[in-house]
């Protein structure tokens, strides 16, 4: 554990809790992509199956359980409790265009051919692009609520901090995992436009709206 990794995890946790807080407080999931939330739930489910097979640390297991619970909770709020507020007309990104290539790639570029390993690799690839329906939704509606912007910023920062963590681990442990690194870089690049808008608008107290 290093400071970048810890900040990355906390940023990720903050993002997930911010989203739940926003939905619960406003009693609405307007502006949130249910498809992105569904993809993240698939990501966590595929990746954290190792909860049953390997133990790393209490911290590790607790965080995995929190991420899983929160993502299923978010789906419950979006597709059941506050379903009437879900803006599905603007959430029109075709997620099979993300799931199928991620699945195919996880059979092609993978360390070891076992079910757990392929599921883990699939989760890494899918996570890299899972935010696309949400970003597509923001671009279609042309705006995002401030709290949604904070959510996206925290979620994007998490993988950027992980990149610093991987650089640090390369120097201290002399090890690189190219699958996570390349996927992490793609994931972070997808947020760049948003980061720019966040810094130039939201941090100056303005609402995030596209020109």
């Amino acid at each position: 554990m290093n400071i970048f990794r810890l900040c990355g995890d906390l940023s990720h946790l903050l993002a997930i809790l911010l989203l739940l807080f926003k939905i619960w407080k406003t009693r609405s999931c307007a502006g949130i992509s249910g498809k992105t939330q569904l993809l993240f739930t698939i990501v966590y489910t595929a990746r954290y199956l190792d909860l049953f097979t390997s133990f790393v640390s209490v911290y590790n297991s607790v965080m995995k359980i929190v991420f899983l619970t929160a993502s299923y909770g978010t789906l419950y709020l979006m597709f059941y409790k506050f379903k009437p507020t879900y803006d599905h007309n603007h959430d029109s990104f075709r997620i099979l265009y993300l799931i199928v290539p991620a699945l195919v790639l996880s059979f092609i570029i993978v360390h070891v051919y076992t079910v757990m390993e392929i599921l883990w690799t699939f989760s890494i690839y899918l996570e890299a692009v899972a935010i696309m329906p949400q970003l597509f939704m923001v671009s279609r509606t042309g705006e995002a609520e401030t709290i949604t912007s904070h959510y996206l910023f925290a979620l994007g920062s998490y993988r950027a901090l992980y990149i610093l963590n991987w650089i640090y681990r390369y120097y201290t442990e002399d090890f690189l995992d190219w699958i996570t690194i390349m996927a992490g870089i793609v994931q972070t690049i997808l947020y760049c436009d948003f980061f720019y808008l966040y810094i130039t608008k939201v941090l100056k107290g303005k609402r995030l709206s596209l020109p």
């Binding site: 190792d50 790393v56 640390s57 590790n60 965080m63 883990w120 992980y162 090890f175 996570t180």
Partner: peptide, 10 residues
């Protein structure tokens, strides 16, 4: 088993 090293991450 070197590539398992990063699987302590979330």
């Amino acid at each position: 088993e070197g590539h398992y090293i990063f699987k302590d991450e979330l």
